[in-house]
Structure formats: C-alpha cells, structure tokens
Amino acid sequence: MKNNSATGSLELPNLNRQPFESRSLKSVLLSSITVTAALLACIPLFSVLIMLLYRGGKRLSLELFYALPPTAFETGGGFGNAIAGTLFMVGIAALISIPFGVLAAIYMAELGPDSKMAETARFCAKTMTGLPSILAGVFAYAAVVLVMGHYSSWAGGIALSLLMIPVVMLTAEEAIKMVPNPMKEAAYGMGCTPSQSMVKIILPVAMPGIITGVVLAVARAAGETAPLLFTALFSDYWLQPNEPTASLAVLIYNYSGMPFENQVELAWAASLILVLMVFVLNIVSRAIGERTK
C-alpha cells in the first residue's frame, strides 16, 4: 500500500489472463472458426483425391495406355490416343513458348530493363495471364482453324502456347533478376559483351528458376480443357497432327456427361492420370526451386 502511494495512487488492473472474460471468449470463438474454416477448405482436395483413387484406380490397367476409346455400348477400351495427343500438343506449346518467353524475359530483365518497350511487354504479359483460357481457344479458332479450314493438333498447341508464354516470361524474368549483381559485373569486367555475359554467366545461374517456371507452365497447359474444345476437338483414332486430336482433358469433359457406365469410369481413370501428371510436374518444379535456395 505504501508503495502504491509512492508512485501516485496507481491502481493496476488484474493482469492475469481471465479465460471467461468476454474478450477472451471472443478470441477463442474466432480461433475455433478459423481452424474449422481451414480444415473445411482441405476437404475438397482430399475428397477429390480419394474419389480419383477409388473410382479411377478401379479402372487402372495397362489397357488404358494402348487401347483406343470404346464405342457406346462396348466394354473395356482405353485412351492411349488421348495421352499421346496431350503430350504432343503440350510439346508444341512448349516449343513455341519457351524460346519466346525466355528471350523476351532476357530483354525485359537485363538488356533493356527500364525501357518503355519492357514496361509495355510486362504489362501485356500480365494482362495475358489474366485472360480467360477459353479466349485462347477462341483466338486460335479464328487465327488457325478458320485459316487452315479444319481442326488440328497445331491449333490446339498454339492455343495452349498462349497460356504458357506469359507464365514462362514472367517467371524467367524474376529468375534472371535474382542473379547477384557482382556476378554480372565480374563478367563485364572481363570484357564480356552483354550478350556473352547473358549466355555464359547469367542464364546458367538463372536456369533452375527458369526451369521451375517452364515446368509450372507445362503443368498448367496439360490440365487445360477450354482452349482445346474447338481447336483440337476430339478424335477416337490415333494421333494425326493435321486431323482433330484427342486429349485427356477433353476426353474427361466429353465422357463425364455420357449415360454409359464404361465411359464415366474411363473419365475417372483419365482424371487420375491427368492429376498424377500435373502433381508430379508440380513436385518437380518445387524440388528444383527448393534446391536453388
């Protein structure tokens, strides 16, 4: 008491935590809502994975990989042509978008970083990442299908490349910017031209980051359906680049609404394989990204 009067009549509130005060209760309540929400958000992922393993796994066999899709009342069958089609079209898209994206990224990050052109290109790339994927299909339909006069795997590949280019470009730009400045300066100090330091020093150092971006872009393209719907269409036969081409994603879409049990099962099996492909690519890109840290 005497101490108190010495410091003025300061009445300290009770500083112990009071678990039943309304403020504490409110905090506990909000915390539990948060935990519940986080757990709820995980349910869809697990539900999708379990259903894929359960319904798709039932159908998993070697036949899926070498057989052609069955007709309406047929049993069995597979989707070897769709796997081949997906790989082929994603391959075309990668061949277009990797050089395109990396070269533009080199300019934006290093050779002309603050130029008007770089700013404009960066803005365009960011705009393209936000475009709905179906518009890539609409564009490829107008620019390729209408010009060639028929659906083809080329149109599908080009539509997919439109989605990959901005992803490759923006991640490659970041990766190149992350290369430490002293390394670049050392190269210049040795008399390298900007291009030489780029090719010999900066690109090798930035390579893991660039590959991470490329793999992510490939994973995204592999799962895309909308750009392929009316560019590559679908086919029940083996891959012929100039003809309509089957893909896993469009197969899932086409078969999901069919009234035949066999086709629905195939759609689940195709989903399982597609998701496995996408997850493996994601894990690979993460592993490369982690190693560089």
């Binding site: 050089p99 395109f100 050779l111 393209m128 518009l135 107008a142």
Partner: peptide, 29 residues
Amino acid sequence: KLFDRLFRGLTYTFTLATVLLLAYILYEI
C-alpha cells in the same frame, strides 16, 4: 560484337512480339 547485336535484336524482337501478340489476339477476336 556482331553476336551481341544479333542477340540483342533477337530478344528485342520477341519482346515486341509479346505486345503484338496481345494486339493480334484482340484484333482477331
């Protein structure tokens, strides 16, 4: 020096192509 010129030109071309590509997409649609 020649390589430097060409390489710079190449990267510039593709940067320009990004802008043109978006413009072409809009124009076509």
